[in-house]
Amino acid sequence: MVRLITHNMLTCHVKNCTKDNFPLVFENVELEVRPAEANLDFIKRFIPKLEWDALVQTARSIGEDSLPEQMPEDKATLESEEFLQKLHHVLMEIHVEEGQMKCRGCGHIYPISTGIPNMLLAEHEVGR
């Protein structure tokens, strides 16, 4: 159930991993698409918190290419129902149920099992 909205909020947090630690790369994923009631207000409020490039790149990596490369610049398009619905689908309806997320920087693998990612770190990966 890792949704792309959650994925967009997460980075690698291994000690001293500061380069290429976002976005994490999905690997060996099993996807599920579950229709969800749209809350476009929520989506609209979330747009400023998104990393657009990372979202588009990640969505494409799992075969979802409905989003434009660039975030629409004019407010009218950005807040149009059509665009928000599209965004709702990508952010909220696609779930990664199994697989893993890999850091491009340090190579740490965060496994995902039954929709819950394990983001715990090993002893040598945390500071004191």
Binding site: M9, L10, E37, P117
Partner: peptide, 22 residues
Amino acid sequence: RNRILDCLTFDVTRNGWRRGGL
């Protein structure tokens, strides 16, 4: 179910949140 965005296993003192103000 649809309002649970996600559940994650992690230690909040070693959290992976990309930014504040979320």
